[in-house]
Structure formats: structure tokens, C-alpha cells
Design a protein around this nucleic acid. Structure first.
Lengths: 132, 132
DNA sequence: CTAATCCCTACCACTTTACTATGAAATAAA
DNA sequence: TTTATTTCATAGTAAAGTGGTAGGGATTAG
């Protein structure tokens, strides 16, 4: 039940972007330096957050990355969901057909409870609340 | 963020034991048959639940496994914690010293929130509530 | 004594994780 | 137009974790 480093680094990346939101595009190099994470690894992680629409980027000198919307509009649960490919604690929560017992499975009910408890709590927090 | 099959199978195992609590010790063979899980794999999983004190066993013919206490006294969060070796979504929640940034890490605060949201919700459910 | 049952340890194929590496494409500034 | 700087795309890889299987020993009811 551990988050991957992709998720942990990705979250720190988002917080870093929020902290520099007013300064315009920030290069991966500077984020990597501040966060102590390799540039190449961050490049891969940022792709996930771009796909989810949280970040927009510009190439070339003076280019970089910036949040696609103000930090107040970004829910932490949705950020995590983008990084983790959903927060479901079991595949059967989202895809019941992957298990032939899913229809009347008491365990599955539990996975739904656990998943939504975490998701709701995380979504009650905005990225803006993560800085200070 | 997916639970391992150990946790999912282990939970189903506990529910199965609860359903047969009044019948005395149940053999792994019969659980395996009902749940469609191999005997050998269940044997490994049950060890974790025995260590945590949820199950007691007797050897020999007519032997088997039974809950060490009534299903009403068993919290699902603690069952999962035993199977998953803690429910922390990141190692730094329980062991801050494993990350030198933990002391003032905004991400870590988030992992604490997510972990306790899930743990508290799961602990509000007793094993007895999982059957019917 | 025998059969049923739990207990213990080792092994293994496969997948995932957590990166590193290489280089191409875009673009601002000289 | 050249150059330096940045993102973008893809491939490779060592180590760890997952999800089992296998074999045999210990215990005990009948």
C-alpha cells in the first residue's frame, strides 16, 4: 500500500510549482536542484501531470513549466489520481469484471470504503493549502 | 497504491472465518475450496494473521483455524495493517528519519492525512459487519 | 499406526520500480 | 543564422517485489 516514488516526487513537484507560480515558467533543472531529484526522472513524471492538464510547458531558453491553473483550483486527490493512475486500493473497485466474485464480494465493499475515504479527504485539500 | 493479493486474500480469509465462527476450527483446505485460493498460498497468509493474534490454530485431524476473538471485537483497519505491515502510504509517515526532508516536508503532511483517513474509516468497521 | 492437518523453509518466474542514457525538436537570443 | 537552452520521446536496465509452487516436517484424533 505504499505510494510509488513517482507519486511522491510528482506531488513535491506540484508543490514546488505552486510556490513559484507567480514567477512564470520554471525549468526542470531548477526544480531538480531544489528537490534533489534527477532531471531525467522528473521529465518522465511531469508527462503524467501534463496529460492530466495540471501543467503547461514552453520549450527553448527561458522556457519551462507552470501550473495550468491557480493552485486554489487544484485538488490534491486528483493530482494523486493522475500520478497513481487512480487511487483505487484494488482493481476490482473500478473494474468489477476483472474478478468473477466481485458481484457479491464483501471484501470489495471494504475496498470501496477505503478508497473513497482517502480520495475525499485528499480532495478536500487544495494545492494552495500545501504551501504554508 | 494497490493492495497486494496477500491483503485481499487475507481479508477474504478473515471474513470466511467469521462466517464459520460458530462451527469450531475450520481447515485451510475448506477455506481454499470456498475462496478459490491455493492451500499453500493461504498457509503463508494465515501466518501473518496468527502473529497479529487474530487467529488460533489446532493441528491434527479435526484441527483447523478459528478466530481468536468474536468478530465484533476485530477492527478491519487492524486486520489490514497486519497484512500490509502498516497502512502508511509512505514510509516517512512512520519513519521520518528515512528521509532527510521529512522534518519540514509539506508532502509528508499529506501522506499523514491520507493514511489516517483510511485507517480511521477502516477501523470504524468490525469484522462482524462484513458478514451480511 | 495412519491419516489429516498445521507449520516451516526454500525456490522461482514474472512484473514493477526507479532510475540512467541517448538524442531529437523547438525556440529565444546573439 | 548560429548557438545555447530548454522540453519531448524512447529505450534500456539492475534491483526489488509479487504471487505463487514445492517438499517435507511436526502434531494429533481415531
Amino acid at each position: 500500500m505504499k505510494l510509488t516514488t513517482k507519486s511522491r516526487y510528482g506531488t513535491r513537484l506540484m508543490i514546488d510549482l505552486a510556490e513559484h507560480y507567480s514567477e512564470g515558467p520554471v525549468s526542470i533543472g531548477s526544480i531538480a536542484e531544489r528537490q534533489g531529484i534527477s532531471v531525467k526522472y522528473l521529465e518522465q513524471i511531469i508527462v503524467l501531470l501534463k496529460k492530466a492538464g495540471f501543467i503547461k510547458s514552453t520549450r527553448g531558453p527561458k522556457g519551462g513549466h507552470i501550473l495550468a491553473m491557480p493552485p486554489e483550483e487544484i485538488k490534491m486527490g486528483e493530482v494523486l489520481a493522475a500520478l497513481e493512475d487512480g487511487l483505487d486500493v484494488s482493481g476490482c473497485v473500478h473494474d468489477p469484471e476483472t474478478c468473477d466474485r466481485a458481484e457479491d464480494c464483501k471484501a470489495r465493499d471494504l475496498w470501496e470504503v477505503a478508497t473513497s475515504a482517502m480520495y475525499n479527504e485528499l480532495n478536500s485539500l487544495k494545492l494552495s493549502e500545501m504551501i504554508q
